[in-house]
Each structure stands twice: as C-alpha cells, then as structure tokens.
Amino acid sequence: MTEPLLRVDGLKTHFLTRAGTVKAVDGVDLRLDRGEILGLVGESGSGKSVTGQSILGLVDPPGRVVGGRVLFQGEDLVGAGEKRLRAIRGRRIAMIFQDPMMTLNPVLSIGTQMVEAVRAHEAVSRAEAWERSRRALARVGIASPDERLASYPHQFSGGMRQRVAIAIALLHSPDLIIADEPTTALDVTIQAQILFEVQKLCHETGTALIWVTHDLAVVSALADRVAVMYAGRVVETGTVAEIIGAPRHPYTRGLLESVPSRNRRGVPLRSIPGMTPSVLDLPEGCAFRPRCDRPTAACTTMPELAGERDDRAWRCWNPVAAEVRGDAA
C-alpha cells in the first residue's frame, strides 16, 4: 500500500473551558489519497469543522490539539512548529471557510488579499503576483478580473466572494484543499455551480479535497469517499456508493432517511429522535446510544471503528444489515 497524501490518526482536539473540557474532536481517523475527494459529514457540533482546522493547526485557544497525528505526505503536522506550518498553509494545504461574507477582510482590496497570499510563499514581484491573481480569478469564472482586483469584498455577492476564496485557495496549486461547508451560506443554484466548478478544478489540477458538510446530498454529488462524524468521532467511512447504498451505522441510516429522495417517494421522512449530545457530558460508551433505536448492553462500551477494509468501516456493535435500506423504514 502506498503512503496516502494525508493520514489522520487518533486526532484529539479539546477545548479547555471554565465549564469543563470540551472534547470537540476525540480520536478521529481519516485517510486521503492524491486527487481524492472526501466528504466529511456530520451535524453541527459533531466536530467536523474543528477536525478540518486541526489538520492545519488553526484551532484558536482555548482549543488545542491534545493527541494523535496528522501525517501529510509522511510529515507529522501536529508536532510541527509554527514556522513549518506556515510554509504549508496556503501552499500545500489550502482552506476555504463557511461564510464567504466573513472570510475576506472588509478593509483590504481583493487584489491586496490575493497578492499577499502569492507573496507569502513565493518571492515574486508585485506585478507578477498581480498577474497570477488575475489568472486565478479568471479561472474561477470571474469576469473582468482587473476591475475586480481593485474592488473591496462588500462589492461582491456571497457567491462571488466564495469564488474569490476558492481562487485564493488555488493560487499555489495545493495538494489538498480543506473546504469547510463552503456552500452552506449560498443560494441553491450558486451552490450547484460552485460544487461543479470545484470538482472540475480539483480533477484538472489533481488536488485532493476534504469537503466538510452536514449535507449528504452535496457529498453524494461530489465526493469519492465519505466519513460520517458523530460527537467528535468518525462513526462510519466508505465510498459514496457504500455509504448511500448500504449504510451500516444506525446514525448514517438515520441521516439518509431524513433526506428527501426520488426513490422513496411516498415514504414519510424520518428524523433522528433526540438531539446532538453536549460534548461536555457525553454518555459512557457509544455516544449515539441514547438516540439509537437498537441499543444493547454492549453499547455501554465504545465500539472500535472496524469493518471490511481500512476504508470501509463503522463504529457499531450491531450494525444495520447491508440490505436493510430501502424496504424498511
């Protein structure tokens, strides 16, 4: 087996607050090959965004990575110094955030924010950096880029700002882009355009992508593989077809059944009973147990992430049978 582009082993990110230790990420394992698109799925509070930020060491205090490894091309980023991380951020691993209204600095022009991103990693002239920025904007489908570079963020719509953020992420042709719900704040039509373009650009450049989202529909349209997170842990992972077609973890199945689908017309949508548990006081054992419709005595201890292959696994003592989906409910 070849060394994957990224391997996350037992990553733990905790927030040490006055109210107690919040274990936002508590033992996450992921792997990603070159050019692969991974959908990281979960409800809000499941730790998926913190996972994305932990990979690049961007978690703000009181949050801290307290354990595990993030192996990027064999190099552990958890132990890496700030200087080394800075050399990787934006150049080898880029990031796109959720709210495009907030990710661009309101008092700096787009050109300034792009040129500085180019020059942070390459000693090129301002003019050269400007030219690179211009091409990057054109590549994400922004018309009259020269004019746009002189503009300020508030003159752009949300979709346009997110395109700018994507253009910035692509400036150095990184090996990996971590996109944290980048389309959630956008209109549905724009969401579709951006999804399509990101997929196309990643395939063109061979960039791998981690797409953090709560939306299984988005993932199914975009990703190669999926990892489902619940309460700070990955509960199931597999290819899109496996996750959508034959979910094994009851939580994944619950998620799928709460999404409307053409194939299940007439079947009432289900919702998962209960609420995402507070990460401040998780139940002993399997965190999903209180909401699960099939808990057993075994569930009071934490199941391991295990399954057919390394990349087809689930964290459940009595998984849903592979063929259940579709006829029950």
Binding site: L58, R86, R89, A94, F97, E116
Partner: peptide
Amino acid sequence: QDYVKFARAKGLAPAR
C-alpha cells in the same frame, strides 16, 4: 473574525 483565520490559513506571517 473568520478573515483573520483565513489570513492564517493563507500562510501569512504573524507580523502581516
């Protein structure tokens, strides 16, 4: 603010 985190994600130096 997110834009500060985004600036860090771009790999900018703390001074900048």
